[in-house]
Design a binder for these strands. Sequence first.
DNA 1: GCCAACGTTGGC
DNA 2: GCCAACGTTGGC
Length: 154
Amino acid sequence: MQYWLMKSEPDELSFDALMAAPARTVPWFGVRNYQARNFMRDAMRVGDGVLFYHSSCAQPGVAGLAEVASAPYPDHSQFEADGKYADPKATPEQPRWVSVDVRGVRRTRLLPLAELRGIAGLEEMPLLQKGSRLSITPVTPAQWQIIVARLEAR
DNA sequence: GCCAACGTTGGC
DNA sequence: GCCAACGTTGGC
């Protein structure tokens, strides 16, 4: 069992929108960074815990808990020729990008980025490193426990 | 809107 | 293979 932090722009997909989706599950498409892709392709397992993070918005922070709900599969959006995620170099025979399904588990209070920065034990989180932009990053079990404990404390 | 940081592209 | 230019991310 591993843990992850996955960023979503709430204008695209908020945590509430995830919980409102059929089976509280959506395909995670549009990742166009190789490191993030490789995490999905090589390391994620069904049942892994996910911190659902709202980025590029007024209140960036962790908005809920989710889980990985499928094995990796080709990201359909890479083949949609007129879509914003189209990749002309990808073919169904040789896909470049993958998706996994993500299922919402439970909404939490919004745990703001500024608060995360102040919590002891989270200093090593990639999210908090200067210049870090990766949309999918691993979370250690210790970091996960600290964050979940903090969410339950108030 | 600004801008620092980063990843990708493409000429050489 | 180098590296400058460019585009994107994402907090503020």
